[in-house]
Amino acid sequence: MFFLLSVPLVLFSLGVVLARSPVRSALSLVVALFLLAVMFFLLDARMIAALQVIVYAGAIMVLFLFVIMLLNLQHEPVETARPGQRTIAGAFAVVFALVLGAVALRGLPTMPGPGVEVAVTPSFGSVESLAERLFTRHALAFEVTSVLLLGAIVGAVVLARKIPR
């Protein structure tokens, strides 16, 4: 089941990066986000899985597709990479993955607690348990988030407005 989800997930993520047209890129990102939502669900994060579909696949991707259509990027010329850029970027990616893997390899065995395979209480990942944590221990962060969203709304409106000349 893990590979049934993770192999397409990696393939569609590569599709996001490698696709020629922005629309194809955005659509494969939608598929990747849906696969991630299924993965969240199977990890007992039911509320997060629902939010993933609503917020990411719903709101954010619609915003992306809307901007792509607004800018009419279908007939964009092929991107020109500087010579050697792709090799350097590829080498960087490999080194980056190796460093991350080395850090994870050092940290994982020392980690306390049971593995993912252990059963959890039925309420784990439910709306109640998430809300209970969110409104008690993380209440301040929650309030700061509302200010952040307000700032983002105002900022987006101001930036996207047509400036009269």
Partner: peptide, 27 residues
């Protein structure tokens, strides 16, 4: 899931909020 702690999922909630704000301003 591994640590049986909901705090990880609360963090995902915040990451999603920041991602939404970032996408709106960035676009």
């Amino acid at each position: 899931r591994q640590q049986q702690a909901m705090d990880g999922q609360v963090m995902v909630f915040f990451v999603m909020t920041v991602a939404a704000a970032e996408a709106a301003v960035g676009l």
